[in-house]
Design a protein around this nucleic acid. Structure first.
Lengths: 337, 337
DNA sequence: CTGTTAGCGCATTCAG
DNA sequence: CTGAATGCGCTAACAG
């Protein structure tokens, strides 16, 4: 690897001058600069960011910790993060936790040791001591999509309660009275908030809440597929289903197909997220849109703001985006019974 | 940030001893080690990988350059990469190029300056000078899924020709004579190879190749959707379609639905990849399976082998995985005409 | 077993 | 305008 010293030797100048010339600092003879640049290129010089980081105290790298890259929602968020970060001169170190809390803890540790300038975390929401530690040590971080209130975090989330409310209200307006909610793991904040939204809509329509109508499952298609089959086996007979995510809706859809229930004639279906696939399903899915790429992009903006904001105080930035109901063809008026 | 010096001061020992103690080196009094460790923990010491990298000459970081994280195929590969890398003690810096060659070139530059120990590249296959440069400078890299022969690269790919051959042969065995191939951008090696496989199958069944039956499109659902509509508008009437990827198949499927063509009764459809969604479609998709996670995992293994292999020579590792035909319900015997 | 010295590659003082 | 000196935090000789 060629270093500044190599260029210095080659040009007969000092290392310092080379550094100044290459970094576009003032007080360098234009001709000297020219010569340095040409020699640098000729020698194939590539600046050593590691060394630069060590002295400069910043790595121009951020960490992105997400729970499931496989989920189109998060791969889109990740894309937004990576591209926005790059546009700002940052690289992105990616860690996929698979919803494992231990992986998250370990990831935070590694990223700290790599001296990332900040982290974007989509937390698993188990123990949060490692997050507290970040706070205590003044390491910038922004939570994505889920929040952990103990640490008064900065975050960018979506108004989950409202989103769920919109979805369920839409169903109720269509005359449905028995709306099943296929939900996720209870520890997750967005899961809880969407249940709240679900209840809110019910209560507004004077429909009593029936706890059997909320079932919890894992956040993958196969789980919701199995859960849906089980629900109908158990004798519940909803006329509409609102799932925690589009991914779950797809699994549920498959189950409904096998149960010979037509969407939307026999049963209405609403998802959440509006992943690309939602519009490509046999019956385009009614869903609650989140701007996934934008979430990623704004998360980066936030983080960078925190990194540079001298007057930053914990919890200063809390962004709640507004979701939007997208009505497609998977929902219809309840059948006469 | 607490450093070794802080611990040294606190314990009255030298920086060196602290380093040795914390790194589990021999020749350290057990009691001393204990004390050092406890003080380190108490002070909240987090080792500085940047400094360590500078002196050690390795960053324990790899770069992952992919063209489209949005594509479930690549998000799965990325997941395999990240998890395997982490298991080996490496972090992964992610760059998403969006198939833009300039982004790729820039990414290589940045990753070089960050002194990654190696790169995994899913190349856009435009100009390849920056890749040649990597080769010349002895920087380890492995190509994923596409290859650039000018640089005699190491790579891990899938036997594309065979995969396409299997897909098309399957269709021909079902009696189809007019098989449309919806393909990708021509510059891409896997695109070319799959066309070769397509032709191979045709020729084996004595069906003359008709170049109108191969149409090129972009690698997203919407493109194949539009392309499919256009194809039928133009008067072509295939009885079967083999698409470059499952993603394209989904787009095509939507178009067929709108054209009132039933799969598989009116038309058979085969994809490639076997992404999770393939099995969840209204008509589960016949496809050619690639082990995406495994590709990522093995790519990392390869890269790390190259990094450590003293007797490595360029092009030493070329891995070609065998694809597997998965027959589901989107293909059927050709209808009597 | 422990301390001293040196240097990784660079940027930032400060002199000249 | 340029050079010499210093240190970022750490590890690797080497000495004691």
């Amino acid at each position: 690897m060629v270093t500044l010293r190599d260029i210095a030797r080659e040009t007969g100048l000092s290392v310092n001058t080379i550094s100044r010339a290459l970094n576009g600092k003032p007080d360098v003879n234009p001709e000297t600069r020219q010569r340095v640049e040409s020699v640098a290129k000729q020698l194939g010089y590539v600046p050593n960011s590691i060394a630069r980081s060590l002295v400069g105290g910043q790595s121009c790298t951020i960490g992105l910790i997400i729970a499931d890259l496989q989920n189109p929602f998060y791969s889109k968020v990740a894309q937004g993060v990576e591209e926005a970060a790059r546009a700002e001169g940052y690289s992105t170190i990616l860690v996929n936790t698979n919803e494992r809390e231990s992986d998250e803890r370990q990831a935070v540790q590694v990223l700290r040791s790599k001296r990332v300038d900040g982290m974007l975390i989509h937390p698993t929401q188990g123990e949060s001591e490692h997050i507290c530690q970040l706070r205590n040590d003044g390491i910038p971080f922004v939570l994505i999509n889920r929040h952990i209130d103990e640490v008064n975090p900065d975050y960018i989330i979506n108004n989950n309660q409202k989103g769920a409310y919109l979805a369920v209200r839409h169903l109720l307006e269509l005359g449905h009275k028995r709306v099943l909610h296929i939900s996720g793991p209870e520890r997750i904040s967005s899961v809880q908030e969407r249940i709240t939204g679900y209840k809110q809509a019910l209560s507004e329509f004077n429909i009593p809440f029936d706890e059997k109508m909320v079932v919890h499952t894992q956040l993958d298609m196969q789980s919701s597929y199995e859960t849906t089959l089980r629900v109908f086996e158990s004798g519940l007979s909803p006329t509409a289903i609102y799932t925690y995510s589009d991914l779950l809706a797809i699994g549920t859809f498959k189950a409904l197909r096998e149960l010979n229930k037509k969407v939307p004639d026999d049963i209405s279906l609403v998802g959440y997220d509006d992943i690309d696939f939602a519009a490509f399903l046999e019956v385009p899915l009614t869903t609650v849109r989140q701007q996934m790429y934008e979430i990623g992009r704004q998360a980066v903006k936030l983080l960078i703001k925190i990194i540079h904001d001298a007057s930053y105080v914990p919890g200063k930035y809390k962004v709640v985006l507004d979701p939007e109901l997208i009505v497609r063809r998977s929902t219809a008026k309840v059948a006469q019974q």
